[in-house]
């Protein structure tokens, strides 16, 4: 069953800014969908349209089979977690969780049961009488999630909920959000500009750029077969190498070298190669790929990054730390499966 359908959604702000340009997304029951994209691409706007905090200029938001374009946020059966938590500073944790239920006219006993259950789930039971200012960032984050959980919504909406936490806590909370969402079995949309967060959390990723969808797919699809040069360079770290190349006669030509083309193409193309799939041939190993000039080596511990150029264009390759450090000149060993070809003009995948 489908929890949420966004159909041809358009958002034009009163000042004329076109933030979302006709977007279609569906979220299935229990699915965690991540909107990812650079800052200003319209992720928050789209999420806030689902929440009802922004009006819908054109298109439809259908939640649980009901058109909700004109429905107040409180009556949409959604719950939202904000980046800065937006906890009520003067209310205790308990009251923060209970406030929404109280406004709905839920009986006191039921509120109490729900708040305590959520508090137990999030391990904030000991802080119920504290004010938000007496909590750490991670604890506040949990309270914000607790406030969403007690509403028992059809869908959770997260807007960059972890970006105020330090890196270590972020990784921990990320995992926790995923576990919690699985356990509750509630659909969720999670907005982030961090591709690692997107990859690790998502059942499906929606890559947004400039108010439009670049690609929708599972993390494996988005990583393995990026639909455009934008997705290719946005997903994966370090980003995919993108080289200008020529094609013809079933081969790709970069500088002096020819590689067998994975798809039929003619004329100029953009060739994408992930750093972790660009193997360096050590000395004698009969590699026939293009030569790479090495200029910098970065040690990251388990792996090392080799920066240099191929055919005069910047190129980065990954190498496991137990391989020998290459000299100034190496040859690449590439496999046809690892080559991504994009249209030279539009950047779309060929």
């Amino acid at each position: 069953m489908t929890t949420l359908e966004i159909k041809q959604a358009v958002k034009r702000y009163p000042n004329g800014a076109l933030a979302v340009k006709g977007v279609d997304v569906t979220v299935e029951d229990g699915e965690l969908v991540v909107f990812v994209g650079p800052s200003g691409c319209g992720k928050s706007t789209l999420l806030r349209m689902v929440a009802g905090l922004e009006s819908v200029t054109e298109g439809e938001i259908v939640l649980d089979g009901r058109l909700v374009n004109e429905v107040e946020p409180a009556n949409r059966n959604i719950a939202m977690v904000f980046q800065n938590y937006a906890l009520y500073p003067h209310m205790s944790v308990y009251k923060n969780l209970a406030y929404g239920l109280k406004n709905r006219g839920t009986p006191k006993a039921e509120i109490d049961a729900k708040v305590r259950e959520a508090a137990k789930l999030l391990q904030i039971g000991d802080f119920l009488e504290r004010k938000p200012s007496q909590l750490s960032g991670g604890q506040r984050q949990r309270v914000a999630m607790g406030r969403a959980i007690v509403r028992d919504p059809a869908i959770f909406l997260f807007d960059e909920p972890l970006s105020n936490l330090d890196a270590k806590l972020r990784n921990q909370m990320r995992l926790e959000i995923k576990r919690l969402q699985r356990r509750l079995g509630t659909a969720a949309i999670y907005v982030t500009h961090d591709q690692v967060e997107a990859m690790t959390l998502a059942d499906r990723i929606v890559v947004l750029n400039n108010g439009e969808i670049e690609q929708i797919g599972t993390p494996a699809q988005v990583y393995g077969a990026p639909a455009s040069t934008f997705v290719a360079s946005f997903i994966g770290a370090p980003p995919m190498n993108l080289l200008k190349a020529q094609t013809g006669d079933g081969a790709i030509v970069i500088g002096e070298s020819r590689i067998e083309a994975p798809v039929r193409a003619n004329g100029p193309v953009t060739l994408g190669i992930r750093p972790e799939r660009a193997h360096l041939a050590n000395g004698s190993g009969g590699a026939d790929g293009p030569p790479m000039k090495v200029d910098t080596v970065e040690e990251l511990g388990a792996v090392r990054l080799i920066h240099g150029s191929v055919g005069g264009q910047h190129f980065t390759a990954n190498q496991s730390a137990d391989e020998p450090i290459p000299g100034d000149q190496v040859r690449l060993r590439l496999q046809a499966d690892d080559l991504h070809l994009f249209d030279h003009g539009t950047g779309r995948r060929l």
Partner: peptide, 14 residues
């Protein structure tokens, strides 16, 4: 007063 507080309250039915 941060705008998110108003938005959170709106979602909470205030």
């Amino acid at each position: 007063v941060p705008n998110e507080l108003l938005e959170a309250a709106r979602i909470d039915g205030a």
